[in-house]
Amino acid sequence: MARLARLTLAGQVHYVMLRGNNRQPVVRDDADRQALLDMLAEQASRHRVAMHAYVLTDNQVQLLLTPETVDGVPKTMQAVGRSYVRYFNARHGRSGTLWEGRYRSTLIQPERHLLGCMIFMDLEPVRERLVDEPASFAWSSHRHHIGQLHDKRIATHPLYWQLGNTPFAREAAYAELVRAGLTATQIEAMARAVWRGWPLGDAAFVVSLQQQTDRRLAPAKAGRPAKTRSSTSAS
């Protein structure tokens, strides 16, 4: 069975993951991390893609992106994937593949899942036991959103602005959301959505997306298609 094309639409929030082959590291030091983030920022700007949040651990990158055009995310990720592999192989004297196939992505309903996805990403270094708390990890957008630094790569999503009337109020509200964390059900839903590529949102959201694309937006039912009366009579 041919695999489905990625779902990508202009103006929608895309949750994207790019992982190392066999979960091997895609960065070896801070110079690699900085180079990868710089490439992401450069290509996102070139292809008119807003980057709302990111996290870069040793073996994967997770992003929240909104493109102005339908091909903004694919062009950004393809350019970064190729250019970073060339950089990484040249710097570390290696050859061959680095990424685990093509990047994974899905569309999310912002009103229901944007902040949850941001929290999921901020807590990834904690889940991987790299740090004890998100603010101790330098390679994510968490510290930008809690006001510890200004990250010029970040295009703040309007839903974040609604957390408070002042910067301090927004930062404190977001920090509290991260401290509260996510349920196991939320974590499973987000991980499953980005891995399988099905939209993450309610039924009305999926219907609105289906009006914009011919791509199937839900898993096909298992088993053979049911026979029609005419086909049954002919057999």
Rank of each mutant, 00 (worst) to 15 (best):
T8E: 15
R19E: 07
Q34H: 06
P25G: 11
V49S: 07
R19T: 11
V27K: 04
L36Q: 05
G20D: 07
H14K: 00
Q43W: 00
T69N: 13
L9M: 14
A53R: 06
P25R: 10
D30F: 05
E42S: 08
D32V: 05
R48E: 14
H14C: 10
A50E: 12
L65G: 02
A50F: 02
Y15W: 14
L63R: 01
D30Q: 09
M39A: 11
L4E: 12
L36E: 01
Q43S: 00
R46M: 08
T66I: 03
V13L: 13
R6W: 11
V16D: 05
Q24A: 14
D32C: 09
V70E: 15
T57R: 02
H47G: 05
L4P: 03
R6H: 15
D58R: 01
P67V: 07
R48K: 14
A41N: 06
L40V: 04
Y15Q: 09
A53K: 03
A50L: 03
L65V: 05
N22P: 02
M51D: 02
M39K: 11
D58F: 08
A50R: 12
R46L: 13
H47R: 11
L37W: 07
N59F: 09
V27F: 04
E42R: 03
R46C: 05
E68G: 05
T57P: 04
L37S: 06
N22G: 12
L7R: 11
V61I: 15
V55W: 03
H52K: 08
V55N: 06
V16E: 05
T66Y: 02
